[in-house]
Amino acid sequence: MKVTIEENEETGKFTIKVKTEDGEEKTIEIPKENLEEILAKLPPNVEII
C-alpha cells in the first residue's frame, strides 16, 4: 500500500491519496490538526510518499 500526502497551503488541509496492492485508489482531505492521528493509525507495511 502506498500513501501520498500533499499539503494544500490555501485551505490548510492535507490531501491523502491511498493506492492499495490491488490498484484501488482513494483520496481524502483532512485538517492539518488530524494528520498525526491519521498517521498513527496506518499499518506498518505502508509506504509513505
Rank of each mutant, 00 (worst) to 15 (best):
M1A: 06
M1Y: 10
M1I: 11
M1W: 14
M1F: 10
M1H: 03
M1Q: 04
K2M: 11
K2N: 05
K2G: 03
K2W: 15
K2V: 13
K2D: 01
V3L: 07
V3W: 13
V3F: 08
V3P: 01
V3K: 01
T4K: 04
T4F: 14
T4R: 07
T4S: 07
T4Q: 05
T4N: 03
I5W: 03
I5P: 01
I5A: 01
I5H: 01
I5D: 01
E6S: 10
E6Y: 15
E6C: 14
E6G: 03
E7G: 05
E7Q: 09
E7A: 09
E7C: 15
E7K: 09
N8T: 03
N8L: 04
N8I: 04
N8P: 01
N8A: 04
N8E: 03
E9P: 13
E9L: 12
E9R: 13
E9F: 12
E10K: 12
E10G: 08
E10N: 09
T11W: 04
G12E: 03
G12L: 03
G12V: 01
G12A: 02
K13V: 12
K13L: 11
K13A: 07
K13M: 15
K13F: 12
K13P: 01
K13W: 15
F14W: 11
T15C: 07
T15S: 06
T15I: 14
T15P: 01
T15G: 02
T15Q: 06
T15L: 10
I16L: 07
I16W: 03
I16N: 00
I16F: 07
I16H: 00
I16P: 01
I16T: 00
K17L: 07
K17S: 07
K17Y: 14
K17H: 12
K17Q: 05
V18H: 02
V18S: 02
K19G: 05
K19L: 14
K19Q: 14
K19F: 15
K19D: 04
K19E: 10
T20Q: 07
T20P: 03
T20R: 04
T20M: 11
E21Q: 11
E21A: 13
E21H: 07
D22Q: 07
D22C: 12
D22W: 09
G23M: 02
G23H: 02
G23V: 00
G23R: 00
G23T: 03
G23K: 02
E24R: 09
E24P: 04
E24V: 13
E24A: 07
E24S: 11
E25D: 04
E25M: 08
E25Q: 05
K26F: 15
K26A: 08
K26Y: 15
K26C: 15
K26P: 01
T27M: 10
T27F: 13
T27V: 13
T27L: 08
T27I: 14
I28T: 05
I28M: 11
E29D: 05
E29V: 15
E29A: 04
E29I: 15
E29P: 02
E29N: 06
E29L: 10
E29H: 08
E29T: 12
E29Y: 11
E29S: 08
I30N: 00
I30R: 00
I30K: 00
I30P: 00
I30T: 04
P31H: 11
P31E: 13
P31I: 09
P31R: 10
K32T: 05
K32W: 13
K32E: 03
K32Q: 06
K32V: 06
K32H: 08
E33R: 06
E33M: 06
E33V: 06
E33K: 06
E33S: 08
N34G: 13
N34F: 14
N34W: 15
L35D: 00
L35G: 00
L35Y: 04
E36M: 12
E36L: 13
E36K: 13
E36V: 09
E36N: 11
E37F: 13
E37H: 08
E37Q: 12
E37T: 08
E37I: 10
E37M: 13
I38N: 02
I38L: 14
L39K: 01
L39C: 06
L39Y: 02
L39S: 00
L39D: 00
A40G: 07
A40R: 11
A40L: 11
A40D: 04
A40K: 11
K41Q: 13
K41P: 00
K41A: 11
K41L: 13
L42Y: 06
L42W: 06
L42A: 01
L42Q: 00
P43V: 05
P43C: 14
P43S: 09
P43R: 09
P44H: 12
P44I: 09
P44R: 08
P44T: 08
P44V: 09
P44K: 10
N45Q: 06
N45I: 05
N45R: 05
N45K: 04
N45M: 07
N45V: 04
N45Y: 11
V46L: 05
V46T: 10
V46Q: 03
V46A: 10
V46S: 06
V46W: 10
V46N: 02
E47F: 11
E47P: 05
E47D: 07
E47K: 09
I48K: 03
I48T: 03
I48A: 02
I48D: 01
I49H: 08
I49E: 06
I49W: 06
I49M: 09
I49D: 04
I49R: 04
